[in-house]
Design a protein around this nucleic acid. Structure first.
Lengths: 359, 359
DNA sequence: CAAGGCGGAG
DNA sequence: CTCCGCCTTG
């Protein structure tokens, strides 16, 4: 029996908007670990993996692992019936042939219930290579969206080159060639150097994706559980209170002359939007001399990489910018690119193999 | 060698948006005088002439005249890759087979470079008739956009009639006829009576367009203006007093026996919209009483003109409203209409021959 | 209200 | 397979 209450139906709506064009049917693998979805895109070129941990939910309960085979087109329709700020509760019985959705308006003067038929889906669960990436680029998701959209006007593919000064996106087309260079900035480094750490600590590092799959399929109860459900509720409440107040006050990111802890947190709240960035310790140093509190990229680099990808897919991936203000691109030569968006209590990862040669 | 740096890429983007549907390929004639473009529209009915003087640029250098044959569709794509407030630098070598575009974010953490292939274009440079226009109408560009869009819903063409009281746009269609009358106002006169002078002084009067092709505008001065301001003001005052009645009479010119409520309403609706026409205040007195600071038209008139044009083209021309709040319509009987928009350091002129007879 | 994406037709 | 028109989204 599954019961998962999401504070904001909008989260789920945006999630489905992000992947519904890539994948039409997928199993929502529900367990006490949360809900995971993994699927090849329709043309079997890209892979999308969504993870929603119990923390993503206001309340989460799942007695035993169960796969819920969902037609995403149908689910999208059903979700359209929710208002973004409705509370959304997912329910499934142990037989798992129907998914119930309950929408409750915050004012609780409106309750809507939907039931969606589920289906059996051949779960061709693919192992995701457990890569240590040579290069990791953390950048504003809107910037990534913009770049791939721009370049897709010119050509079919983009070469992404990372060195420690910056990242370059380059495309060649019939009518024109173009390249965009984003420089690493100190401000970006400070903003993001711990961005992915938090997640590893909480047990959902990139590398773990594969393990999860096997865990679900093969054994049960064996899964790591660093987080208890009780914690989830409490943490969630805390966030609620704190964020509200902070965001109200937040109207100027500009004036960080001297940075107080509070200001710093406020700035984060504003900057991250709906994303989940846990507050990080105050950093007294600031050095935003290189300008802009939104631009810039942060790069971690073991080795120079240069890879070519289909823009069509990247454009599709970039739809997830609605879920987070930040995106990470993880690359190693000759292995699939990982494009990762983190959002409150979860993440969405896209994998795309590089093009070989210069086609 | 050409190097031209534009403060805001948005200017160029808007310029291309304005003409790209009319013209697909054109030569950018670069010289130390600036950049000029002149082309017939695809169906060889209209002519568009763009001028960007060196002052339009933050930095401008062009060692020797060179024509850059540009496919505007491609250029539009490349320009889409710039953010509106990026600095945009155009570069071309002396061989002129490639146009380089460099976009720099103001924060300078983002640099994008594009290279566009150029082409050879048969430069059928057309002499633009060197007309002394009998009538010149200066008005808010948004108003013009609105009027031609409105009327294009009814019919194919519009008759533009100018007398010294105002300008009337009239269309007839299967389902309905409509006409919009804009009156000259004192406020508009004050706003615009010198509007085109500046340009004359700086050597780019309307008549000069043709001259520019050959070299430099030899002469200056264009619209004759025998109309005295005094007359205008007085007339305007009269209008103020008897606005309703005057309009009735105007309508009578066309066909009306007597004014019905319905007609009256139609006319008003047409006249107002988002436009200028300030609500008629009870005859305050002087001309500035008609005071919107945005509405009204300014008319210079030697001779009454009445010409008919294809609305389809005018609607296209009116896209340039993104470039300027003001548009000038210059007319003489039986010669092409000139629709002119001026913007920082440049101008865009459209020429369209009138329809003959009543087709 | 305008632009981009999708679907249908030639 | 390409182009045009309709529909949806920002």
């Amino acid at each position: 029996m599954l019961e998962a209450r999401l504070q904001e139906a909008g989260t789920l709506k945006r999630l489905l908007d992000a992947i519904k064009e890539l994948v039409t049917d997928a199993n929502f693998e529900c367990s006490e670990e949360g809900i995971n979805l993994q699927a090849m895109d329709n043309s079997h070129v890209a892979l999308v993996a969504v993870k929603m941990q119990p923390e993503a939910f206001e309340k989460y309960r799942c007695d035993r692992p169960m796969p819920l085979g969902v037609n995403l087109t149908s689910l999208t329709k059903v979700l359209k019936c929710a208002k973004d700020d409705d509370t959304c509760t997912l329910k499934a019985g142990d037989d798992g042939d129907v998914l119930g959705l309950l929408y409750e308006a915050k004012a609780s003067d409106r309750i809507a219930e939907y039931e969606m038929k589920l289906m059996d889906i051949d779960t061709d669960t693919l192992g995701i290579p457990d890569t240590e990436y040579d290069a990791s680029v953390t950048m504003p998701s809107a910037e990534f969206t913009r770049i791939v959209r721009d370049l897709s006007l010119l050509g079919e593919s983009v070469r992404i080159e990372v060195n420690k000064e910056g990242v370059r996106f380059a495309s060649e087309g019939e009518a024109a060639n173009g390249n965009v260079l984003l420089k690493m900035t100190e401000a970006a480094r400070q903003r993001w150097e711990d961005y992915d750490k938090d997640e590893e600590a909480s047990g959902s590092a990139v590398k773990k994706e594969e393990g999860d799959e096997e865990g679900e399929g093969a054994k049960k109860g064996n899964v790591k559980k660093e987080v208890t459900d009780d914690d989830v509720v409490m943490v969630d409440d805390d966030d609620e209170d704190g964020e509200e107040e902070q965001e109200v006050k937040d109207d100027d990111d500009d004036d960080d002359e001297e940075e107080t802890d509070e200001k710093r947190k406020k700035r984060k709240a504003g900057k991250q939007g709906k994303s989940s960035q846990p507050p990080k310790k105050p950093r007294t140093k600031k050095a935003d001399g290189d300008g802009g509190d939104k631009g810039g990229v942060y790069i971690q680099l073991d080795q120079h990489v240069s890879l070519t990808f289909s823009l069509k897919y990247l454009v599709n991936f970039s739809k997830s910018a609605t879920l987070s203000d930040t995106v990470m691109l993880m690359m190693s030569n000759d292995v699939p690119l990982l494009v990762k968006y983190k959002f409150g209590g979860g993440s969405i990862c896209y994998y795309l193999a590089p093009k070989i040669g210069d086609d």
